[in-house]
């Protein structure tokens, strides 16, 4: 065996996380209005950062450091919905209507 399994697993997880972040950024540009763009940002917040932190935990081995890394998604779980909801509520209150079908 020439290469390390742990490195391989964390590499794959990093790639998955990067793919989700790429899709989220693409969605931020592509989707039609504020409300739909929040979904794309949420994708980056949850799945993108989640997979990357998971990969880092596996890569660095289990120690106090991995507990600290686990705190990052824990805080994101609490803060990311609040920001998303705040933006959506503000857009709604100032009279934005969500756009319907694929309009360019």
């Amino acid at each position: 065996m020439s290469y390390n399994y742990i490195e391989l697993i964390s590499l794959v997880l990093l790639a998955i996380g990067c793919f989700f972040i790429l899709s989220g950024s693409l969605g931020l540009i592509k989707l039609p209005d504020v409300f739909s763009r929040i979904h794309a940002a949420g994708l980056i917040d949850t799945l993108g950062s989640g997979f990357i932190v998971l990969a880092l935990i596996i890569y660095s081995g289990f120690s106090l450091l991995s507990l600290k890394l686990l705190l990052i998604p824990l805080f994101l779980i609490f803060t990311s919905p609040v920001t998303g909801h705040a933006i959506a509520l503000f857009a709604h209150e100032s009279g934005y209507k969500p756009r319907g079908k694929n309009k360019k």
């Binding site: 409300f35 739909s36 929040i38 979904h39 949420g42 994708l43 949850t46 799945l47 779980i77 609490f78 990311s80 919905p81 609040v82 998303g84 909801h85 959506a88 509520l89 709604h92 969500p98």
Partner: peptide
């Protein structure tokens, strides 16, 4: 409300007592 917003593709916009206004993709 947090769980709805946290799952990508759905966002809670407004909370009215026992009813949520949700935007879905």
């Amino acid at each position: 409300a947090n769980a709805i917003t946290l799952t990508p593709g759905t966002v809670t916009i407004e909370i009215d007592k026992k009813k949520f206004l949700v935007h879905a993709l």
